[in-house]
Design a protein around this nucleic acid. Structure first.
Length: 270
DNA sequence: CTAAATACCTGATGGC
DNA sequence: TGCCATCAGGTATTTA
C-alpha cells in the first residue's frame, strides 16, 4: 500500500526511463480508475518528459504541453518492462517509451488515478490545497501545533490528513506516533507543543528510513522493477497486535480509529 | 466551519 | 471444494 516512501521509491525507479525521454504512445486498456483516464492524455504522445517529481503521493510527469498526474491509490504500481504485451491481469495503462522500454500501470483495486492537465500541475485542484511535504523544512512541530489548536479529531487522523501534511498513511502514522510516544486516539488539540516537536521529527525519520529500505511491502507493493521493499522488518507496531513491544515488552494493541486499523503500545504511548 | 461516514474496488482470508 | 462475509486501505466526497 503505497505511502510516501513507496511512491518515492517508484519515482526513483522510473526516472531513468522517463525523465528527458519521449512518450511514444499511451494505450489504455481499462480507463475506469478512480476517475476515468481522460482522453486528452494522448496530447502527451511524442512529448518529452522534462520534469518528474513527487507531490505527496502523487507522481507528476511534466511535458511542454501539460502534465500527467498519477496516484497509486492503495494497490497501484508502475513497472518498467521490455515487452509491451506481457500483460497481466489489472495492467490498465501502457506507456511506450524510448529505447524499447515500457511503463505499465497495474492496479487491482483501481483506487489510483492517471490524470492530465494542461495547466501548471500545482494548480490542479487535487494538488492545489495539499499540506506541506513532511521532509521539507516547512514541516515542523510548531506548524502542527498551530494547525491543531481546538481540533478534536484524533491525532492519527490529523497527521493522515493530506491538507495538514502529505504522504503519511496508515502504516507510518502508527509508527511515527509510537516513536513519539503519543496515543493515536488522543485529540490533536490536546497534544503538547513538545510532543508535536518530537512527532514531526519522528515522521521525518521514519519516512526517511523507509525510503532507504525501498519502502514497506505488506501485501502488494513492488517497485518499478517488480521487487518488494524491506522496511516491514523495521516496523515497531503496525501489524504486530499481541506481539511484545520492542521497547517494553507489553503486548501491542490494535484498535479502529477513523475506520482504520491502528496499532500502539499502551505502556510507551500516552 | 468541523467531524464522521461513505464510496470506490478486488483479492486474501476465515468460517461453515 | 465452494460460498459468503469480512477486511484491507487513500482520499475525495457526502452527510451530519
Amino acid at each position: 500500500m503505497p505511502e510516501l516512501p513507496e511512491v518515492e521509491t517508484t519515482l526513483r525507479g522510473i526516472s531513468p526511463y522517463l525523465l528527458n525521454k519521449k512518450i511514444k504512445a499511451i494505450k489504455i486498456r481499462q480507463p475506469r480508475l478512480r476517475w476515468p483516464v481522460p482522453d486528452d492524455i494522448h496530447a502527451a504522445t511524442d512529448q518529452k518528459i522534462v520534469l518528474l517529481e513527487r507531490r505527496g503521493k502523487y507522481i507528476i510527469a511534466g511535458s511542454r504541453v501539460g502534465s500527467i498526474i498519477m496516484h497509486l491509490g492503495m494497490s497501484g504500481s508502475l513497472r518498467i518492462a521490455d515487452q509491451p504485451f506481457e500483460v497481466r491481469k489489472h495492467d490498465h495503462v501502457l506507456f511506450e517509451l524510448s529505447h524499447k522500454k515500457f511503463m505499465i500501470y497495474h492496479d487491482p483495486r483501481r483506487f489510483g488515478s492517471i490524470l492530465w492537465t494542461r495547466d501548471p500541475a500545482e494548480q490542479y485542484p487535487l494538488l492545489a490545497d495539499l499540506g506541506p511535504e513532511p521532509l521539507s523544512d516547512e514541516f515542523t512541530g510548531k506548524y502542527l501545533f498551530k494547525k491543531s489548536r481546538n481540533k478534536k479529531v484524533a491525532i492519527k487522523n490529523f497527521v493522515m490528513n493530506s491538507h495538514i501534511v502529505v504522504g503519511v498513511g496508515n502504516i507510518y502514522a502508527s509508527e511515527a506516533l509510537f516513536r513519539a510516544g503519543i496515543r493515536p486516539g488522543r485529540a490533536a488539540g490536546r497534544v503538547t507543543a513538545a510532543s508535536f516537536n518530537l512527532l514531526a521529527t519522528e515522521i521525518k525519520s521514519v519516512l526517511t528510513a523507509a525510503i532507504k529500505s525501498g519502502g514497506t511491502t505488506l501485501r502488494d507493493f513492488v517497485n518499478s522493477a517488480g521487487e518488494p521493499g524491506y522496511f516491514q522488518q523495521t516496523l515497531n507496531v503496525y501489524g504486530r497486535e499481541g506481539e511484545p513491544c520492542n521497547q517494553c515488552g507489553e503486548n501491542i494493541k490494535q484498535r479502529t480509529i477513523g475506520q482504520r486499523s491502528t496499532f500502539f503500545c499502551t505502556n510507551c504511548q500516552t
